[in-house]
Simulated assay, not measured.
Amino acid sequence: MYFYIQDVIVDPEYQGQGLGDKVMFEIETYLQATCKTGATIGLFSAANKEGFYLRYGYLARPTRTLGSGMYKTV
């Protein structure tokens, strides 16, 4: 019913090559096959990295000092 994504990080030397998108594609494929209707998927985004997760349908719940808590319901 509840899923949590932890630490999707690409080494700066390899950023900009689509590796983060490939990781998220695999995660999202697994979640689509596994989650039942009504399941919630949560994660914490690093500050200013929320746009990466917004592309996958996650919604931001911003805080003042940390990156956003984000979630989506399937």
Rank of each mutant, 00 (worst) to 15 (best):
M1N: 15
M1A: 14
M1W: 13
Y2Q: 08
Y2H: 11
F3Q: 06
F3A: 04
F3R: 06
Y4G: 01
Y4R: 12
I5P: 04
I5D: 04
Q6P: 02
Q6M: 12
D7S: 15
V8W: 06
I9C: 07
V10L: 04
V10S: 01
V10K: 00
V10I: 12
D11I: 01
D11H: 05
D11N: 07
P12N: 15
P12A: 08
E13I: 07
E13G: 04
E13T: 08
Y14F: 15
Y14G: 06
Y14R: 10
Q15P: 10
Q15N: 13
Q15R: 15
G16N: 14
G16Q: 14
G16F: 15
Q17R: 15
Q17W: 14
Q17A: 13
G20W: 06
G20F: 02
D21W: 06
K22H: 12
K22M: 13
K22E: 12
K22A: 08
M24K: 09
M24I: 00
M24L: 14
F25T: 10
E26M: 13
I27D: 05
I27E: 00
E28S: 11
T29I: 00
Y30F: 15
Y30G: 08
L31P: 01
Q32I: 00
A33T: 12
A33G: 14
A33Y: 11
T34A: 09
T34N: 12
K36Y: 13
T37M: 10
T37V: 09
G38V: 08
G38L: 07
G38Y: 12
A39E: 01
A39D: 03
T40A: 00
T40M: 04
T40K: 03
I41H: 02
I41S: 05
G42P: 03
G42T: 03
L43N: 04
L43Q: 06
L43F: 08
L43A: 03
L43M: 10
F44Y: 14
F44R: 03
S45G: 12
A46R: 07
A47S: 12
A47N: 11
A47L: 09
N48R: 15
K49D: 03
E50S: 03
E50T: 04
G51D: 10
G51S: 10
F52V: 02
Y53Q: 02
L54A: 07
L54H: 06
L54W: 05
R55W: 01
R55V: 05
Y56L: 03
Y56A: 01
G57S: 11
Y58R: 02
L59F: 03
A60I: 02
R61V: 06
P62M: 14
P62F: 15
P62R: 14
T63N: 15
R64G: 08
R64S: 12
T65M: 10
T65P: 00
L66F: 12
L66N: 14
G67P: 06
G67K: 02
M70F: 11
M70C: 11
M70Q: 08
Y71S: 02
K72M: 08
K72F: 09
K72I: 01
T73Q: 15
V74M: 09
